[in-house]
Design a protein around this nucleic acid. Structure first.
Lengths: 251, 251
DNA sequence: GCGATCAGCGGCACG
DNA sequence: CGTGCCGTTGATCGC
């Protein structure tokens, strides 16, 4: 395909905000928050109506190079190469694909008003848990969810029957070290503001060994949350408190 | 385009591991770690040679639905619709695009052995900093970088001239609360193992106000790292310790 | 606009 | 394989 012709196809797509795909041999250069260079090879470049720019190889899920929406797309033919460029400010970034050969450059109008409906998100689980705190422990009563702290927000904030504050961190997947550190930060924040002792609980479908050690050292609790994702909606099937053998002997 | 013809194009692309793009009107359903549904609309579906599967709308950088590599791609025509499906195990997941109309279905062989060369990564900055610890403080000597801890790894581990342990966390972008909590975890881990006091330092191009408060409460230090990314390589241009006005008066 | 957090995070490197 | 963590993280929501 003639580069001149390809350039016109790109320009037309950009001005009409159509979905554009260019397939050909190119080199790619990125300068901005970082710097990257990709030597010549055959790739697919996609430019979307909102200025999103993607360079895809024929492997891996993610684009090897990209530019987020709102970029300004420019084209030029230089030195017998078609340059397609996406620039943006804040941060100042430029992504440039330089084609030595274009196999195809085509654009499509795409009518699509629909957005994704997703179930099984952490927010959904958090809301469900709020209505089911008795499953964790008798007398546990919800105070607030998404409780805003000066530093971050607590998934579920509750109070037990001895009126201790309880901070619950919900994770939709196996909890790791970061989950426990996060919980710790919230607990300490609440502890500082209240006179009473504060308990920390993680509700997740699992926890890594390291995270479990750390959790126990900090005196926090882990509840294994068994849930199922339906369409629409989800369901918490069970919650069982998990203690380790060791702790049973220690206690 | 005939759906039967589109199906053949997809099958051929999959068997030959070519880069496939299908443009048309479809509904999308995902079941696995979560569940999602996307009502009918015009989209671009991409299937790569390694089984990666992407559904792109004409907006946003990321695919609205996807399936990671190694998925098994199957097709069928059912109820006058072309179904393209990507399934995988561990976790068990299925992504399905059901086309009522296909505008185009084409595949391309893509020769590309090249991989990205990236500069300005955290690892690069960490290595540079290792050779420049004097810029932070006279007498600060590097011990190890990427020092593996039982819980995570320390970017740069050093010792000051009073032989205190110093844990340095490097961030390539502005440090937030999570950076400070991470640092805190490392410092406490080292503290537990050593008798001497342990200092915690964050080196980043900036820090958020909340994170700065938290950092000071914990007695940690922040060094503003001014760096430039070149091609190839990067350069740390300067490091200045930042104290807040308030602290100056307090001290 | 920045700040904090989630994500079906993905990807990588290491044990 | 799981664990941990970076990422040009992106996307979202709250301030």
């Amino acid at each position: 395909m003639e580069l001149q012709e390809a350039k016109q196809a790109v320009d037309k797509a950009v001005s009409s905000e159509e979905f554009l795909i260019v397939i050909g041999t190119c080199r790619v250069k990125y300068t901005g928050r970082a710097v990257s260079k990709l030597a010549e090879g055959e790739r697919a470049v996609i430019v979307k109506g909102d200025g999103s720019f993607l360079v895809h190889q024929n492997k891996n899920l993610k684009a090897i190079n990209y530019q987020p929406p709102d970029g300004v797309i420019t084209t030029e033919i230089n030195d017998d190469q078609l340059v397609v460029r996406a620039s943006r400010r804040n941060p100042e970034e430029v992504l440039e694909a330089k084609f030595s050969e274009v196999k195809e450059a085509k654009s499509f109008d795409m009518d699509d008003d629909n957005s994704l409906k997703m179930f099984g998100t952490e927010e959904e689980l958090s809301n469900l848990l709020m209505q089911d705190l008795e499953h964790i422990e008798k007398g546990l009563r919800p105070i607030k969810n998404e409780s805003p702290l000066s530093k971050g927000k607590i998934d579920v904030f509750a109070r037990d029957k001895e009126r201790n504050n309880v901070v619950i961190e919900v994770k939709r997947r196996k909890a790791g070290l970061d989950a426990v550190t996060q919980l710790k930060r919230y607990v300490e924040e609440v502890d500082k503001r209240k006179e009473k002792n504060t308990r920390g609980i993680i509700c997740a479908p699992g926890i890594t060994p390291n995270a479990c050690d750390f959790l126990e050292e900090e005196g926090f609790e882990f509840y294994e949350m068994d849930y199922e994702v339906h369409n629409p909606g989800s369901e918490i099937k069970g919650l069982k408190g998990k203690q380790r053998m060791l702790k049973d002997f220690d206690g």
